[in-house]
Amino acid sequence: MSEIREFDCRPNDQTGAESPLAWSFQRGPAPAADAQAGVTLRESAFMGHLILRGGAIVLDEAVREVLGINLPARPNTLAVDAKGERSIQWLSPDEWLILVPGGEEFVLEKALRHALGQAHFSLVNVSGGQTVITLRGPKARETLKKSTPYDVHPSAFPVGKGVTTIFAKTSLILRQPQADCWELIVRRSFADYVYRWLLDAAAEFGVTVERR
């Protein structure tokens, strides 16, 4: 038996799958569409989320080889591939978050394990445990100021930055992969709370929830 147990926990058939915000959407109507909305919110559900842990020197080459992205070595930074679909974010000196389109995560996990061979590292699929909420709009930053003590001013939070920080009474990963696009990576069990908080905090600006 291999020393680490790989397990593809994603079924081929996605029927009946429910994202972390499924209950929030089911419970109550989303706010009515508002053409003047200062904030637009959507869930990027069912993505592949992997936590990669190890030394930067150990991981760097394999990540570049397999993912085609340089491992961000500087604290609080984020690297995104050319298409903007795959990203890897610094979480800690020995911890990174990899986000890929849903369904790619197990292939990627196997490829990375293969590339890393006997090196000491850990790779964990957490796709079911978190979701991505995207905020856009002229008042997105103002909404964030009501929610997180982290400084989101352009001078302190440029595009390409990402941090784990406090949000209301919980925590999340906050990042800005592109201009006017904030991604909140939220733990599944807190997703509804964050969603309700965002609707409440953005109410004075008008908020639209985009559903696929």
Binding site: E18, A22, K169, D192, D200
Partner: peptide
Amino acid sequence: GRHCRDLFDPERYTALHA
């Protein structure tokens, strides 16, 4: 602030809450 009523404290839900 807005830490009151339904938002007084986070409510954590499992995937089966509905």
